[in-house]
Simulated scan of single mutants.
Amino acid sequence: MPDEEPDGRGRRRRAGKTGRRASRRGDADGGAPEGGGLFGGGDDAGGRSKRRGSSSEEHSSDPEARARGICLRLLTLAPRTRAQLAEALRKKEIPEEVAERVLERYSEVGLIDDQAFAAAWVSSRHHGRGLARRALAQELRHRGVEEETVKEAVEQLDPDEEVETARRLVARKLRSTSGADPRVRTRKLVGMLARKGYSAGLAFRIVKEALEAEGEETEGAEGGYLDSL
Score class of each variant (00 low, 15 high):
Glu5Cys: 04
Pro6Ser: 03
Gly10Gln: 03
Arg11Phe: 14
Gly16Arg: 10
Gly16Trp: 09
Gly16Val: 11
Gly16His: 10
Arg21Glu: 12
Ala22Cys: 10
Ala32Asp: 14
Pro33Ile: 00
Gly35Cys: 07
Gly36Arg: 03
Ser56Asp: 15
Asp62Ile: 11
Glu64Ser: 07
Glu64Cys: 02
Arg66Tyr: 06
Ala67His: 05
Ile70Val: 11
Leu72Met: 09
Leu72Tyr: 09
Leu77Trp: 05
Thr81Ala: 00
Thr81Arg: 02
Arg90Ser: 11
Lys92Arg: 14
Glu93Thr: 10
Val98Asn: 05
Val98Thr: 15
Glu100Ser: 09
Val102His: 03
Leu103Phe: 12
Glu108Phe: 10
Asp113Ile: 03
Ala116His: 11
Ala116Asn: 08
Ala120Pro: 10
Trp121Asp: 04
Ser123His: 11
Ser124Glu: 15
Arg133Ile: 07
Arg134Thr: 13
Leu136Met: 03
Gln138Tyr: 14
Glu146Ile: 05
Thr149Ala: 14
Thr149Ile: 12
Val150Met: 02
Ala153Val: 08
Gln156Ala: 13
Leu157Trp: 07
Glu162Asn: 02
Glu162His: 01
Val163Trp: 13
Arg172Ser: 11
Ser176Leu: 03
Val184Lys: 02
Met192Pro: 04
Ala194Pro: 05
Gly201Met: 06
Gly201Trp: 08
Gly201Thr: 13
Ala203Thr: 04
Val207Arg: 00
Ala210Ile: 00
Glu216Val: 08
Thr218Phe: 05
Ser228Asn: 02
